[in-house]
Amino acid sequence: MIRIIVVLAAAFTTFTFWTCTQSESRNYVSIVGSSTVYPFAAVVAEQFGRTTRFRTPILESTGSGGGIKLFCSGVGLEHPDIANASRRIKKSEVDRCRENGVNEIIEVKIGYDGIVLASSRKNPPMSISRKDIFLALAKEIPDLSGAEKLIANPHKTWKDVNSSLPDTKIEVLGPPPTSGTRDAFVELAMEGGAKTFSWIKDLKKKDKSRYKAICHTIREDGAFIEAGENDNLIIQKLEANPDAVGIFGFSFLEQNTDKIQGSSVDGFEPNFGSIAKGDYPVSRPLFMYVKKSHVGVIPGIKNYIEEFTSDKAWGEDGYLADKGMIPMPKEEREKYYNDARYLVPIEIK
């Protein structure tokens, strides 16, 4: 028995190493990146694989930062061709790319995603401002008397924050710090609220790290509950506890409108129209970055981008809108369609 196993294992290892050295070319597109873009990119990849002669692209959900890091690690078959991101690529990342020989990157903005604050349908919808969000969730808030100093957040109920809000305990279920949704929420909602205090706004120029610490630090006394990356779980918890508020991507609200409702922020309800127009303040653009040097080497990259940027995919009635992505206005779509078509690389100063 042992002899058989040893022989089998030896034969197997030689066989696999032989096949590995044989398969030097990769005949599918490799995509990495944001978990927010993942559900949208996956529909396009599937559609592309089923309707063209190319193989279905492989899509890894690594998070925006992790995806760009992989993307920038070099040129060659073992490195991914496309990175999805729920934020714009940073200058430091472009520099890193350049160090590794990835010189030309094509940027394609693909649409928008809204971050919603939603609660159970059992209670009437809330209408809050970004200032309320900041005052309810920041670890330290400006002194209530108006002096320019910080105190630990004393607010226990929404009514403490703003007398027009309901008298329920502040209980917010949100994503952990590793999530791109959390980054965007902190940047758009919390920072937006903090800026309404002029002295904090002035601090941005004087002491940037202190400014960031004030705006970006969420309280840790139990009012904000990190509910993990699983947004379906947050929805279940909201159903069980009507007083709680959850933070997640717009596509989850869209799929569960019978159970939960989005709170309007600064007077705008989270829906397709307000997010696409840019009225709803807590929304962010989604991007796709393509390695130009791989186009033409790996079969299908160009066709995949073409599928993604076609009106039946990212248009107003496209299948991506059905999945909850908010389409860009027509002019913007045209601009990025042309960038993608003629493979215009970005310049980041």
Binding site: T16, T19, C20, Y38, A41, I58, E60, S61
Partner: peptide, 17 residues
């Protein structure tokens, strides 16, 4: 190692994604 991925095609060998 990249196995947390969206893969439509059923793998047919030890080196298929």
């Amino acid at each position: 190692i990249g196995m947390v991925a969206f893969i439509v095609d059923v793998p047919g060998s030890f080196t298929d994604p």
